[in-house]
């Protein structure tokens, strides 16, 4: 999986999938950072409708609880620091 977000395009390796409080939860790592994605079934149609490549809204939603971490990164900054 690849995560496109306004702050970076990163590999997302899924290490586990489960249901938590009625939400689908993907556990994994975005590069070296622990990351999880939570989606409620009711969100799926909306996500599908907005699933435009490289969309910020999707990026932020997909990052879920890891958003704060992901936002710290920057997007395509040259030869990153």
């Amino acid at each position: 999986m690849i995560i496109n977000s306004p702050v970076g395009r990163f590999p997302f390796e899924v290490t586990g999938v489960g249901l938590v409080d009625g939400r689908i939860r993907l556990e994994g790592a975005m590069g070296t950072w622990p990351t999880s994605v939570e989606v409620t079934p009711s969100e799926l149609p909306r996500i599908a409708a907005r699933l435009v490549p490289r969309s910020a809204a999707v990026g932020a939603a997909v990052l879920g609880s890891a958003a704060a971490l992901a936002l710290a990164a920057r997007r395509r900054s040259r030869r990153a620091a």
């Binding site: 690849i2 395009r9 990163f10 590999p11 395509r76 990153a80 620091a81």
Partner: peptide, 14 residues
């Protein structure tokens, strides 16, 4: 040492 969780910087990891 790299700030982002993957190598590549602006050139991207892949």
């Amino acid at each position: 040492v790299e700030r982002l969780p993957a190598a590549g910087g602006s050139w991207q990891f892949d």
